[in-house]
Each structure stands twice: as C-alpha cells, then as structure tokens.
Design a protein around this nucleic acid. Structure first.
Lengths: 123, 123
DNA sequence: AATTAGATTTGGAATCGTTCTAAATATATT
DNA sequence: AATATATTTAGAACGATTCCAAATCTAATT
C-alpha cells in the first residue's frame, strides 16, 4: 500500500458520492499535485482487485467507484442522474428461487425519481 | 426507416447473441459493403431512442445491443463471459415492496456459471 | 422531369476514457 | 551500500464513440 494508493482509497472512502476516475484524479491532485492519471487508474484497479473498493457501471456512462461497505446496489434518478445506495433484503435468495440456485452475485440498478425530482414533477 | 437502419435492426433481431457495435458493423458490411461505422452507431442510437432495440452494458465491457422482446435481464458467466437472457418474475414488485413504490424500472445482471463452465468446474 | 429542402450517410478527424510503455523513483532484500 | 523488485510518472497509444463537412438520398413542389 503506497502513499498514492492510500490517498485514492481515502478519497473513495470519505465521500457518499460515486466518483469517476477523472473526479478522483482531480481530488487527488489537491493533496498530491504530481500524481499522474495513470497512477489513479492503476490504484483504482489495484484497490478493486483487492476488494477494498468496487467499480460500478451504468449503461452509457463512464465507470464509477464506490467504497466497500455492506453489499448494496444503486438507484439512479431518471431525471437528474443522482446516484444513491439501496439495499434490497433477500434479493439473492429471491433471484435464486426464481431462477434455480446458481447465482454467484448480481448487479442491480433501480431507475427512479429522486425525492427532489419527484417533488418537482408533482407541481 | 432507411435501408441502413432496417439492416441494423434485422441483424440485431435475428440473433440470440448480444452483439457489440463493432460486431454489428462487420455483419452489416457483408450485406452492404459501403456502410460506415458512423451509420451503424447512428442507427443503433436511433433504434434505441425509438424503443426498437435496447442497449445493455456490463461493467468494464463495451456496450451491447439486444432486441426488444418481453422485458428481461441478463446472466453473465463469470468464467467464459457468455451472456444469456433471464426473466425473474415479480422482481419489480419485490424491489418496490422492499424499497417503497417509486421504481420506474431496473437493470439486473446475474453473475453465475453457465452450464458448460459449471460442468467443467465439477470435474 | 427539374428544383428545392430536409434528413441521412459517408469517411475521416476529433474526443473521451483507459491502458501501455519506458524511464525514473521508491522500497525491500542481501 | 548494492541489487532486485515494485511503483510512479508522463506521454504515447489504443479502442469505442461522436462529431463534422461534404455527398447522397428522399419527398414534396413546380
């Protein structure tokens, strides 16, 4: 674990946002102005391989990175694009029950309207 | 609906595979050797916007395109990368029940071992 | 049938996100 | 301290996608 990797990890861990590599790079440069973009990608890949963070992808968007907390999925606001976390209890079991029992894991993106956009839509 | 768009639509509709834009381009050139890659992308975007086909994305992979049949999701083999269709009945309702009732839609990717890889792993 | 207007296609350049490469640097081992 | 190994840096290269301007097609109008 190098200084660079620790910094990248800390950036991903200390936000509730779901940052892109570019955003993480810009953030990292504030603390370490000489860090290279390649190092950011390298570190992100390293941290993913070692299950310290997670890469998440939404169709048609660049990948984002998320800290590893309890296993969770994501909600994406159809209107403003805001991303939030969501936990659906028992979903793995539900999928297994419907599909047979060979589920290793799953990725779920729930499309919705966030509270702000929902309120705006009502008026 | 132009000749080019009709051809792209026909290619996506007449396969069970989940082709990338590049694969569709190569296929299209067999029938229409002068078609441009830009036209393939243009047509794919047009067909998606008009809900005639669907773009699907897996984290860390280029996007693929799928025909519009009954609403379904995808299984991805962890070992060989094979993609197959899956229908999980009542999943929208299950997610709504667990999460509140503001689900517009969802994308699900189930990670598993396909029958072939599963058989190979057992031995 | 010729003219025009609008949409689409073509081919190539441009862009974006990501990975690769080679040289420099840092870290760990003898 | 000398060596070997891993990591970083900076920039080039790459793959996927979009943009652009010119050419072509389509449909409507004369």
């Amino acid at each position: 674990m190098t200084k660079q990797r620790a910094l990248i990890l800390q950036i991903v861990q200390s936000t509730h946002e779901h940052l892109t590599a570019e955003q993480i790079f810009l953030e990292a440069r504030k603390k370490m102005p000489t860090i290279a973009l390649a190092t950011v990608y390298n570190s992100l890949n390293y941290l993913c391989e070692n299950h310290m963070i997670e890469k998440i992808g939404f169709t048609g968007q660049t990948d984002r990175y998320d800290k590893m907390l309890v296993r969770h999925d994501h909600k994406l606001c159809e209107k403003c694009g805001a991303i939030s976390d969501v936990i659906i209890d028992g979903l793995k079991e539900y999928i297994e029950e419907k599909n047979g029992s060979d589920v290793l894991s799953y990725d779920l993106t729930v499309h919705h309207l966030c509270p702000t956009c929902r309120a705006a839509a009502k008026s």
